[in-house]
Simulated scan of single mutants.
Amino acid sequence: METRNKIALITGGSRGLGKNMALAIAKKGIDVVITYHANKEAADEVVEQILTMGQNAIAFQLDTSNMKSFDSFVSEMATHLEKENNSPNIDYLINNAGTALYAPVTDTTEEQMDAVFNIHYKGVFFLTQKLLPFINDGGGIVNISSGLTRLVMPGSAVYGSLKSAVETLSRYLAKELGSRRIRVNVIAPGAIATDFGGGRVRDNKEFNDQVANITALGRVGLPDDIGGVVAFLCTAESFWINAQRIEVSGGQAI
């Protein structure tokens, strides 16, 4: 009897950390579905890279802040997977898509908070809910949080608070999904040099140096520091890791 490859869905997989996660997961012999918000060309390039590695891959457009789009996305993805694999299911869900908000409490608007809330909490909650019937028993969920739930930096009150909510949600999911042997964990990256937040960590030398100076390993993080950890959580070797927040920061502010 032919056994199919495991399948992982990564939201926001066309660039930055999501791209790195997608490639690292593919290296584990897992097929990949990624979503992208607007840049189809970048998403297609990631798909092409994965295909050249010998794994199946496909990209779908998805706005993770728009809950009304979730049903059609899930239906489109399930239809494709059913056609390709005789099953609409996936094995791993990585809730990665997100945007930054840098604003002090005194200046944050309701519109700003609503936008970040929809992407970083409400979207994560309801996309996960919609996908639960399509995640195979024994699979896993990885939610991407932030070092900013532990380390307080002025200007990140809304973002950090909502990521804390995701960390708490993850523990509840782990408890509720335990009977299906679905593990739910959190990866909390430290400051990483990507284009996230306008490239703040990557392109601002003063901020980059500031982070490096308070990090035990002496530099800011790189995408390659994160993807492999997420990929590990999508393997049988990590089965007994559940309901955990794993900070991947090189020892930032310890």
Rank of each mutant, 00 (worst) to 15 (best):
D107S: 13
E110F: 11
N118C: 14
I119G: 00
I119N: 02
I119E: 06
G123D: 08
F125K: 07
F125D: 08
L127G: 02
T128I: 07
K130P: 00
L132T: 13
P133R: 09
D137V: 06
G138N: 08
G139I: 01
G139W: 00
N143Y: 08
I144M: 15
S146A: 08
G147H: 11
P154Q: 05
S156T: 15
A157R: 00
G160Q: 02
S161T: 15
K163H: 03
A165C: 10
T168E: 12
L169T: 10
S170D: 06
S170W: 09
R171T: 11
Y172H: 12
Y172L: 09
L173V: 07
L173R: 05
K175R: 15
L177M: 14
G178Q: 12
S179V: 13
R181M: 14
N185I: 10
V186F: 04
I187N: 00
I187G: 06
A188L: 11
A191P: 07
A191C: 07
G197Y: 04
G198I: 09
V201Q: 03
R202I: 09
N204V: 07
E206P: 00
N208S: 12
V211H: 00
N213V: 04
N213A: 14
N213F: 08
I214P: 04
I214E: 14
A216Y: 10
R219G: 11
